[in-house]
């Protein structure tokens, strides 16, 4: 099997760039600053000993949250220009007239962006291992966290690729990608609140399926399930996210379902993008016309 040539080319170019090093450096700096800040803030009001699981869980949560937010910001930026940029630079036709499959172009672009995310995640491993050494966090939990990061990044990246193929200009594609991202993160929450207020008068003791679309809800579900909600889950404060009572809530953890939903969104987005990018595509509905 040959490695996707688009991926290979992008990696070669990006790794040569000083910008890549600068981004990783800045990224790690932010993470370290947050970890330090949380540790210091907590140790002041807890009379903590040096080795204290509570402390490390605080630091873990802090780094995890910041890293998640950074990924949510970075992934769309990396992909929303991927195809539109080729179009603007007038290199897209040169790719499309080769025998490279449209899906290979789309997937190559996605993988190239994901490899950057992966590098950022890998760069953060040392910081997590310090937390890990302090105890309170298991290797499995860190693996779950990284898995969730990657799937979310792929989802956000796929949406970026989708808009990048359907919209001509990079700027427009980026704006639309972030708009949809904001809707998924906050719009769905608002809808959930109004929906439950109107139809249930806040008497809704379950997890509203709409919120499986929400990456923030999925992420907080992951963190609360990792610590058994001992920090008083913020989730239960928002209607529609009521999951914590282990006696009433049955079924898989919301973050697991969120992962499946994200994979589904990614597949659909990439599929639509591959169809759109193909200049001589038959319409998706052509099979209907024939009949």
């Amino acid at each position: 099997m040959m490695i996707n040539p688009v991926l290979l080319k992008e990696l070669k170019v990006k790794m040569r760039n000083w910008k890549a090093v600068a981004i990783i450096g800045g990224y790690l700096f932010i993470l370290a600053a947050v970890a330090l800040f949380i540790t210091l803030a907590n140790s002041n009001d807890m009379y903590a000993s040096t080795i204290n699981p509570q402390l490390s869980i605080g630091a873990y949560t802090g780094i995890a949250v910041i890293q998640f937010i950074l990924i949510l910001f970075i992934a769309p930026a990396l992909t929303s220009g991927a195809i539109a940029g080729e179009r603007e630079r007038q290199t897209l036709d040169l790719l499309l007239c080769t025998n490279l499959a449209p899906s290979a172009i789309v997937i190559g672009k996605l993988l190239a962006s994901m490899s950057h995310i992966l590098i950022l995640i890998i760069a953060s491993i040392p910081m997590f291992s310090i937390v890990f050494l302090y105890g309170g966090i298991s290797a499995l939990e860190i693996a779950q966290l990284f898995g969730f990061y990657i799937v979310t990044a792929i989802m956000a990246g796929s949406i970026g690729i989708f808009f990048s193929t359907y919209v001509k200009r990079t700027i427009a594609a980026t704006v639309l990608t972030y708009a949809l991202g904001i809707f998924m993160s906050f719009g769905t929450l608002l809808i959930a609140v109004f929906y439950i207020r109107i139809f249930y008068n806040f008497d809704y003791q379950s997890y509203l399926p709409l919120l499986y679309l929400n990456p923030l809800a999925g992420f907080s579900s992951l963190l609360t399930s990792q610590f058994g909600g001992q920090y008083g889950s913020i989730m239960n404060m928002i209607p529609g996210l009521y999951t914590i009572n282990p006696y009433t809530y049955k079924g898989p953890a919301p973050w697991l379902i969120n992962i499946y939903v994200n994979i589904g969104i990614s597949v659909v987005m990439l599929f639509l993008a591959s169809i759109k990018i193909n200049p001589v595509r038959r319409s998706i509905f052509s099979f209907l016309k024939k009949k």
Binding site: K9, K12, V13, R89, Q90, T91, L94, T98, N99
Partner: peptide
């Protein structure tokens, strides 16, 4: 009208398209 990948060298540019054609 066409563009080039400005961050590639001449032989890398051809190398890229060569791998595209497998």
């Amino acid at each position: 009208f066409f563009g080039v990948y400005d961050d590639l060298k001449v032989d890398e540019y051809l190398d890229f398209y060569a791998s595209v054609y497998k």
